[in-house]
Amino acid sequence: MDIAIPQVNTGVTADATKVRKSGSEILFTANFEGNPSASLPESLVWYHHEPTWKQIADGRLKYGMKDFSLTVRYEDDLGVNTGLKLAATKANLEIGGSFEDHQSTVWKIIGEFT
């Protein structure tokens, strides 16, 4: 499957840190019955703009997918952390809020067709 992973494009820079780490990982498993007898509901507004869901639907409609599990791990640390706050303070800029290093995000989607 060709599953799109969200990409982040920002113009944020700071002298406090120039380290940017990112990565992604996908695990997809599915079971097939080989008896496609399903159809899509009419007037799905969001469906035509979602390539991942279109591929999952194709798996069901064309190949008889019975169930699936999709796990996506996405990691992106833009370096916007306490170092940025320190640099802003030294430059006499006010910056509020709390800053934490981003670790990772994991999405797990499980589906079963009846």
Results as ranks from 00 to 15, higher is better:
10 T>K: 14
10 T>L: 06
13 T>M: 05
14 A>N: 10
14 A>T: 11
16 A>G: 06
16 A>Q: 07
16 A>T: 05
17 T>D: 12
17 T>I: 12
18 K>W: 01
19 V>K: 09
19 V>M: 09
25 E>N: 12
27 L>N: 08
28 F>G: 09
29 T>D: 05
36 P>T: 07
38 A>N: 04
40 L>W: 02
40 L>A: 07
40 L>Y: 03
42 E>T: 13
44 L>Y: 09
44 L>M: 11
47 Y>G: 07
49 H>D: 10
50 E>F: 12
51 P>K: 12
52 T>A: 14
55 Q>L: 12
56 I>W: 02
58 D>E: 15
59 G>T: 00
60 R>K: 10
60 R>D: 15
62 K>F: 14
62 K>G: 12
66 K>F: 13
67 D>I: 15
69 S>I: 15
73 R>F: 00
74 Y>Q: 07
77 D>P: 03
79 G>M: 02
80 V>A: 03
81 N>A: 14
81 N>S: 14
83 G>Y: 14
83 G>A: 14
84 L>R: 01
86 L>A: 13
86 L>V: 08
88 A>G: 01
97 G>S: 09
97 G>H: 04
97 G>Y: 02
100 E>A: 14
103 Q>L: 14
104 S>L: 09
107 W>P: 04
109 I>A: 04
110 I>D: 10
111 G>D: 01
112 E>R: 07
112 E>H: 13
